[in-house]
Amino acid sequence: MPLAERDYQVRLEVFEGPLDLLLYLIRREELNIYDIPIERITAQYLDYLDMMQMLDLSIAGEFLVMAATLMMIKSRMLLPPEKRAATVEDEEEADPRWDLVRRLVEYKKFKDAARFLEQLERRQSDVFTRHEVVEPGAEVPVGPPTLADVSIFDLLGAFQAALKRIGAHEDLREIFAERFTVGEKIDELLERLREQGEVSVTRLFERMRSRHEIVVTFLAMLELIRLQQIEAVQRGTFGEIVIRPTADAGVSVGAASDE
């Protein structure tokens, strides 16, 4: 579904890469990383890619390269082992998945190492010295400042669930009903958060009856996260995702988006 009448360009750069998405899917589906069901994972990967393109998120070209790699592996898996081994010298690489598995396992180790650094950093944030400290201040944003607690893929998962629920039951009257703009949805979302404090993402999409409204609402949410007006937190791994205003929110972005 192309979002033709785009009133508001949401520029959330996805800093996570294709390997992050694969690891996310493997973890979510509780798959064995050494024996990935390539057909299933490829289908899910492409689903996510579709969503990101539909939302017009600025995804890196590497996502497309990985899609091609997955499809190539999938096609090679269909060949009998004798035939496919002909192209590869190494006995070990007779399994077309091997190279990908090696990369995933290696990357996973560094993600774990990064988590260790995060713990150290957290501990250090309560330590003060007279030394000049490294302060990732406002002028020097380091990556996305906002999605630290929930990955973009978790959010996309919630979005996907909402779209699925609509499925074929999209109310035809809704399709031709009034169009929403991201600007309006931003105001609406802020208003709702002011009243309720926090809203679960599932509840947020609950009463919506058109894909259009879900897409626009989702984009509004991403934009508010990017502007650090709201933050998304997850209760446990793959738990419910809740959005709430950030501590230093309060600046009205609604006014700016009305233009």
């Binding site: 996570e16 650094l117 950093e121 944030s125 309560d126 999605l147």
Partner: peptide, 26 residues
């Protein structure tokens, strides 16, 4: 004693590096 120092320095939400930045650093 960090919490009190943070109040004093008005640094309630310490800015931390993002996961991609931490991964790159690692």
């Amino acid at each position: 004693c960090g919490p009190w120092v943070r109040v004093h320095l008005d640094r309630m939400r310490p800015q931390r590096l993002s996961p991609p930045a931490l991964e790159t650093l690692a």
